[in-house]
């Protein structure tokens, strides 16, 4: 019976200490690492329509349509299907697509999660915010050289 009493002691110790590890979520945001892979941000001004992201995407989440002159017409992204593997960002030569820290995504129907390029510019959490800000201090590792930082313009700011 000593073992049972000892176990009771362990639990009592925890109860008296009163530490908690759960988080009161909407009031207190959980720990999100700078490298977290959340919803996408797409920059129309940076994209060169090379279709690398579309090719690398393992399950066809990204759908790009271009015209005869290979100019971009549509950039559709089905967030409901995305597995957030971040490969599109990894292969993008110009950092036109980036996964932000935003993870609170909801929709009433599947179709609402299909984002066009206008939607991707218009989504509220993109406005006036530099999605790379959260990636400090290893931002350089993410977007390459420092000069590129200056070129960067948050989409939707214009």
């Amino acid at each position: 019976m000593m073992g049972v009493l000892k176990s009771l002691g362990v639990t009592a110790k925890h109860a008296i200490k009163g530490d908690t590890f759960t988080v009161e979520y909407p009031d207190e945001s959980p720990h999100i690492s700078p490298r977290f892979r959340g919803s996408h941000k797409f920059s129309l001004s940076r994209c060169i329509w090379c279709r690398m992201c579309e090719e690398v995407c393992p399950n066809g989440t990204i759908d790009i349509k271009t015209n005869q002159q290979r100019e971009g017409e549509e950039y559709n992204l089905n967030l409901g299907q995305c597995i957030y593997c971040r490969l599109c960002e990894e292969v993008c030569p110009v950092d036109a697509i980036i996964l932000t820290q935003h993870f609170e995504l909801n929709a009433g129907t599947k179709a609402e999660l299909e984002y066009t390029k206008e939607d991707l510019m218009d989504v509220p959490w993109y406005k006036g915010m530099d999605p790379l800000e959260a990636r400090e201090p290893d931002r350089g590792a993410w977007i390459g050289t420092d000069e590129e930082e200056e070129v960067w313009e948050p989409a939707g700011a214009d």
Binding site: T11, H14, A15, G18, D19, T20, F21, T22, E24
Partner: peptide, 8 residues
């Protein structure tokens, strides 16, 4: 139970 299990 939450107190014993370190929860809120």
């Amino acid at each position: 139970n939450a107190r014993l299990g370190d929860r809120i």
